[in-house]
Design a binder for these strands. Structure first.
Lengths: 193, 193
DNA sequence: TTAAGCATGTAAGGTGTTACATGATTGA
DNA sequence: TCAATCATGTAACACCTTACATGCTTAA
């Protein structure tokens, strides 16, 4: 049985400790969401599949009358998770509408390429800001010292996200400047003094 | 009618000039593939949908007995394409298995985080190399001068891809060094002199 | 008492890949 | 003549999001 995208994130999240489907979703949403998302519609069915396959096992753990199932890795599940993590990465997919627009604007409306590059820069800036907030919330976690003490791996991915987006914002701003210059040189009549 | 992901890339590709489905696929594969992919299974059905919606129109253009349909934007299609390009970008999706592994390795096997970071660096390096080849093939296009003379927009996206991946490769190498140092400090007994 | 959050789940529909099928043309 | 490439298309399947449905608990 091949691990699906959702199976990978579930096994990884359970490697630290047992969790419910709901908890997994919350965790994904404020950690891996930017590079590996998952919805309820994927998580709950996948939990059942993984249990049937013997990689995880669920235990009833109600809160009062509120139903709750907590899943833990089986020995086999832990083996699979560790084996997966140790293999070199394969999946890398990107869908970047800003780049696509920039790509086409060169043909349809070269004059607006600088503007599009700046919009893409602004977008990167917003993402960097959101990630910075996550970082701050980790620093202040609880009420003083670092309550959860995020491990080195997750901190590294967070910093990567922040620095990557800041780099991209700067890059697109510079590209916009250059595109403006190029346009000015190519068509000086337009800015005729 | 909302534009699907494939509709966007088709309209954009047709903005420069009329093309067949096959040509669109080739173009996508050696230009936007890294940030906006499309398969035949999407392209051909989408061409039919777009024609039915009146955004493109097909003309028979066989090569000998080899069937071929070339599509062009209608006036309405061009309007939609330009309008789409002028709106700020919305879609930005990423699926990065290397980051996910790094994220989890902090918990399951902190000692291997540097190795995983280096694998991710190597991956970025490979992508940068492939894009550099595309860039070189543009320079040498045909047999001397730049035959196709890529426009500013597409050149910008290509350079972005190259520089982004080179930046990422360097970033992950540095992160690997730091993770190694951190591990050495946290568990000095292991490297006990 | 009521809103927010905890908790689980499914149905419908869209998106996308892969593999397959067909057949013509071109160059080695 | 044979492989590569041009060219179109579909069927099966996997993936994923959104919206909806249900019901409990906690704090305002």
């Amino acid at each position: 049985m091949e691990l699906s995208a959702t199976a990978k994130v579930i096994l990884g999240m359970l490697a630290a400790r047992p969790r419910s489907g709901y908890e997994i979703k919350q965790l994904v949403d404020n950690s891996t969401r930017f590079f590996w998302a998952a919805s309820y519609g994927q998580i709950y069915p996948e939990l059942k599949r993984l249990e049937k396959a013997g990689l995880i096992s669920g235990t009833d753990a109600p809160h009062g009358g509120r139903q709750r199932t907590v899943f833990d890795l089986t020995r086999e599940g832990r083996k699979r998770a560790e084996e997966w993590i140790s293999r070199p990465p394969e999946v890398f997919e990107l869908r970047d509408e800003g780049l696509l627009k920039l790509f086409f604007a060169g043909v349809t409306d070269a004059a607006r390429t600088p503007e599009i590059a700046r919009e893409r820069a602004a977008h990167a800036h917003v993402i960097a800001g959101r990630l910075r907030e996550v970082e701050r919330s980790l620093d202040l976690d609880g009420d003083g010292g670092p309550a959860v003490s995020p491990d080195a791996g997750s901190l590294t991915t967070l910093r990567y996200g922040i620095e990557l987006n800041e780099w991209a914002a700067a890059w697109f701003e510079r590209a916009a400047d250059e595109l403006e210059q190029g346009a000015a040189e190519a068509a000086p009549a337009k800015t005729n003094a």
